[in-house]
Design a protein around this nucleic acid. Structure first.
Lengths: 151, 151
DNA sequence: CAGCATCCTCGGCGATACTG
DNA sequence: CAGTATCGCCGAGGATGCTG
């Protein structure tokens, strides 16, 4: 079903297994792999989830705090609304609003969202734990590529 | 240092703690949070790592296999080279080449790369495990937004 | 075969102005 | 205050052609 031509039989077996693994459970043809960039691959979502993990935030407050944390600059009002809407649609975030004018809208994580935060924290920990190794690898790579003064 | 104006004191404490957590270890001012989209946030890297976890691949073979797995279409030669170069620079992948013409180039994971694959597999498992929940949330959300026939 | 240069497309994101 | 609409930028990624 995957049709591998002149490829090492050992590797072929691995690919078949990987394909089966990817088709498992709820996903039939598409791969859950592509959900990962969709969930955490953008500039803001991971950080938003971390802040929401602290508690319940009003839209404007959340926006201010996101602007201070990290060196990302400020998130635009439009994009924050978009990100929160996506998170709400995916069932990770609850939106609470009053019918006042001006309206008061708050956002908080639900159980599924907290569960995802747990996973992404593991990734962050991995990055922190291996930051030195990665930085060293990058330096070595760049040094070799830049002859600089190799006289 | 983060300067929070009219924000609930309880939340303020949480933000301060989060900021400290983000500054911890190797990262001094920048946040490891932004490394996550950089590492796994693009269309191909996660899938490339999974395939490299199977074994050692020639460039062209790898490209063919990536095209078959998932419903992403084929990766362009240029982008595959770019992604592999980045992974090599980050110290996750080893590049093996001969000086022949035409050249034979192979790529394989090293220990750090295998370690990252382990983490990303956890994320994939999370997505698979919660796929039904997410799909249900999306359906409910969309149904409510599309009045369809609400007469 | 693998890499690089060039050109092009598309989507994410920011900025601004307006509305309930 | 929160959301929407509009505009514009920029970078990721695809397609093609050439080289060692």
């Amino acid at each position: 079903m995957i049709d591998l031509d002149g490829i090492d039989p050992g590797l072929q077996a691995g690919v078949t297994a990987l394909a089966a693994e990817m088709r498992a459970q709820g996903y039939q043809r598409s791969d859950p792999v592509r959900e990962i960039p969709a969930l955490l691959g953008d500039r803001w979502t991971t950080l938003i989830l971390l802040v929401l993990d602290i508690g319940c935030w009003r839209h404007a407050e959340l926006r201010r705090v996101l602007g201070r944390l990290g060196a990302e600059g400020r998130i635009s009002q439009r994009v924050l609304t978009l990100k929160l809407r996506t998170l709400e649609r995916d069932g990770l975030v609850r939106r609470l609003s009053t019918a006042d004018v001006p309206p008061k809208v708050s956002y908080e994580l639900n159980d599924l969202g907290r569960s995802l935060v747990g996973e992404s924290r593991r990734l962050i920990d991995w990055v922190q734990g291996n930051a030195a190794r990665i930085a060293a690898a990058r330096e070595a790579f760049d040094r070799q590529r830049t002859p600089s003064a190799l006289s």
